[in-house]
Computed example of a mutant assay.
Amino acid sequence: MMPVIAFDHLRKSYGGTEVIREFDAEVPDQEFLVLLGPSGCGKSTMLRMIAGLTEVSGGELRFDGEVVNAKSPKERNVAFVFQSYALYPQMTVRANIAFRC
Rank of each mutant, 00 (worst) to 15 (best):
L35H: 02
T17L: 15
L53Q: 09
Y88D: 11
L35I: 02
P3Q: 09
A98V: 12
K43V: 02
G58V: 08
K12M: 00
M46D: 05
N77E: 11
A79E: 08
A86S: 11
S39F: 03
V27Q: 11
M1F: 09
R76S: 03
K71C: 09
A6N: 00
R62S: 08
P28F: 05
T54M: 13
F80N: 08
T54D: 14
C101I: 15
R48L: 11
V67K: 02
H9D: 13
S57F: 01
F82E: 10
A98Q: 13
G42H: 02
M91C: 08
A70I: 08
F80Q: 10
L87N: 07
E60D: 14
R48K: 14
V81S: 14
A51Q: 06
K71D: 04
I97D: 03
S39D: 09
A98H: 11
M2P: 00
S13P: 00
V56H: 05
K43N: 08
E55I: 10
I50A: 13
L35W: 01
L61T: 12
G40M: 00
G40V: 05
E75A: 15
A25M: 08
R21W: 01
R62M: 11
S57A: 11
V68E: 01
V93D: 01
G65D: 05
H9M: 10
V78Q: 02
D29W: 06
V81H: 03
L10C: 06
V27M: 08
F80A: 13
R94N: 10
G37P: 00
D24E: 05
L36I: 06
R100W: 13
Q90M: 13
M91H: 09
F80I: 11
M1V: 12
Q83L: 06
D24L: 03
G40C: 07
E31N: 14
T92L: 13
R100T: 09
Y88I: 15
N69F: 03
E26W: 08
V68N: 02
F82M: 14
P38V: 11
F80E: 07
K12H: 06
K43Q: 07
V81Y: 00
T45Y: 03
P28Q: 08
K43Y: 06
R21G: 13
L53N: 00
A79T: 11
E26V: 15
C41D: 04
G16L: 13
N77C: 09
V19F: 04
